[in-house]
Each structure stands twice: as structure tokens, then as C-alpha cells.
């Protein structure tokens, strides 16, 4: 791709001239090349370390003995529930953010995307203050139903949704914003009401971005740690998802932590492969 771009302006010249141009364009000057190499080494070494020092021989035994299977199951289930919830309420929210002309929407967008930059632990504290037994909403819930969210599996989903949904909202909103509003007008002149237009025209047009946003949201939910451990705790089988399990294992049984990490790494790589066309293209932004 890059090579094609480089050759473009050289079209029509002799082959040697073309080669000279492209070679000159490719040679990396050392003041850029050296720091770049350092950065690559810095990013890759931890992964190399994990592979080199992983207890490969004991891997099956460790994964079977620890709560790995249970934690992985809990992680997959909660991350999937989180993604479904995020799609159901996040896509309409993205539509409102993309299409509303109200001035308050700009403020709303900033608030909605705040969890993207908020330290997750702070998110967990905030969730406790809202949905905890003495929280502003949790108090009513407890008084009326006797149910409290914190330290349940539901709390894991709440924490993950709080942190991960903005990823989906931002991705889908961007797609809706660049989607052609003219097509929605065309649908209206053909007799489609707004909800039909959304379902039959808008949604199919943003489907690729919706899928990417959902995968991103799911991956973020799978890795959620700070908000979860604050709001949901770390009870094996109830609230202990993979990241919490890694954290717990590291204190008691470091080889088990490495084994669990390898599992998460595998899932992450799978996500990258899924998203490669959308996110790994040069120039592709959020």
C-alpha cells in the first residue's frame, strides 16, 4: 500500500528513477530508527518473557487445579452480558449523540465518554456511591426489594458496563456521524418512518462499526479489573473474573498467574485478529 503510494508520483519515469525514489522514501534515518527500535523492544520483551518463563509443562495441571476454568467462564459470561447491554442501550445513545442538534448534547457526550479516561478504581468508588447499599440509588433498591448489587455477579457486569460501554458508544457514534443522512431522507420520501429507517437503512450501514465497537467493548470488559475489584470484590465463583484471578494468583502462586495470563493473552490476540482490518490499517483511527 505504502509502496504504491510512493510510486504514484514517479509514474512515467524510467524504472531506475522509480527505484531511487522509493528507496529514498524507505530509508529510515537513525535518529528515528533507534528510538523506534527501543520502543519495539520495550513492548515486546514482556510478552517474550511470558512465553520463555511460562510453566509450559505444568500448564494443564495448573489451569485445572486453580480456579482458572471458573474465572474464565465467569469472565466470558459477564463480558458477553455487558456487551449485549451496551449494544441495547449504547446504540440508541450513540444515535442521540450523533443526530441531536441540542446544545446540551455536547456536554452529554463529554460525560458519557468520561469513563474512557477515568481511572477504573475511581469508577468503582463512584459505582459504590451510586448503587451501593447506602448509595443514592442503591439505598432505594435495598429499601424496596432487599436486594443489593455490590459483591454479586451482577456487580461485575455493572462495573464492566460502566467502563466498556463508552468504547461502543464512541465507535458507533462516529459511524453514524459519517453515515449519509441523505439516505435517511430518501427512506422518508419512500414512506419509511424514523424507526423503520433506523432499522432498515441506518443500522445496516453502520453494521461493520457496530461489530467493531461490540468486540472492543467485549475485550475491554474482559480485561476490566479496577472498577470490578472495588465494586464487586474478588470472590471465587461469584465475582472473580480472569484479571482478578491473575491478581490473586500472583500473590500466592506466581506460575499460576503466568498460566492465567497466557489464556488472556490468547484471547487478546484473537480479538486483534478479528479487528485487524478495521483497527490495524495505517491511518485508521478510533
Amino acid at each position: 500500500m505504502t509502496a504504491d503510494g510512493d510510486q504514484e508520483p514517479a509514474r512515467g519515469r524510467s524504472p531506475s528513477a522509480v527505484r531511487a525514489v522509493t528507496d529514498a522514501g524507505r530509508r529510515t534515518p537513525w535518529p528515528l530508527g533507534v528510538p523506534a527500535a527501543v520502543a519495539v523492544a520495550f513492548l515486546l520483551l514482556p510478552l517474550v518473557g511470558m512465553f520463555v518463563l511460562a510453566p509450559w509443562r505444568d500448564l494443564p495441571r495448573i489451569l485445572a487445579e486453580t480456579q482458572a476454568v471458573e474465572a474464565l467462564r465467569l469472565s466470558l459470561v459477564t463480558a458477553s452480558v455487558t456487551t449485549v447491554i451496551s449494544v441495547v442501550v449504547g446504540v440508541p445513545l450513540a444515535w442521540v449523540l450523533a443526530r441531536s442538534r441540542a446544545r446540551a448534547v455536547r456536554l452529554l457526550r463529554a460525560l458519557v465518554t468520561l469513563p474512557l479516561v477515568l481511572p477504573p478504581v475511581v469508577g468503582g468508588v463512584a459505582l459504590l456511591l451510586a448503587y451501593g447499599r447506602n448509595g443514592i440509588a442503591g439505598r432505594w433498591l435495598y429499601d424496596w426489594t432487599g436486594y443489593q448489587i455490590p459483591f454479586t455477579t451482577a456487580a461485575v457486569v455493572v462495573a464492566q458496563t460502566f467502563v466498556a460501554m463508552p468504547f461502543l458508544v464512541v465507535t458507533v457514534e462516529g459511524a453514524l456521524r459519517s453515515a449519509d443522512a441523505g439516505l435517511e431522507e430518501a427512506a422518508a420520501t419512500l414512506g419509511a418512518r424514523p424507526v423503520t429507517t433506523f432499522r432498515r437503512v441506518t443500522l445496516p450501514l453502520v453494521a461493520p462499526s457496530l461489530a467493531a465497537g461490540a468486540v472492543l467493548c467485549w475485550a475491554r470488559a474482559l480485561g476490566e479489573f479496577g472498577a470490578t475489584i472495588t465494586f464487586a470484590g474478588n470472590l471465587p465463583g461469584v465475582t472473580q473474573a480472569m484479571p482478578s484471578a491473575v491478581y490473586r494468583a500472583f500473590e500466592t502462586d506466581p506460575p499460576a498467574a503466568v498460566a492465567l495470563s497466557l489464556v488472556l493473552l490468547t484471547v487478546s490476540v484473537a480479538v486483534l485478529v478479528l479487528l485487524r482490518d478495521r483497527w490495524l490499517r495505517p491511518g485508521a483511527g478510533l
Binding site: D180, G182, L183, E185, A186, A188, T189, L190, G191, R193
Partner: peptide
């Protein structure tokens, strides 16, 4: 628009 029964051919076709 949806209830008007108007056929609109857009310049960019849409």
C-alpha cells in the same frame, strides 16, 4: 415526508 406519497429523485440518487 413518509406520508406524502412523493417520489423524489435526488441529484446524487441516494
Amino acid at each position: 415526508a413518509a406520508d406524502r406519497r412523493v417520489g423524489l429523485v435526488f441529484q446524487d440518487y441516494r
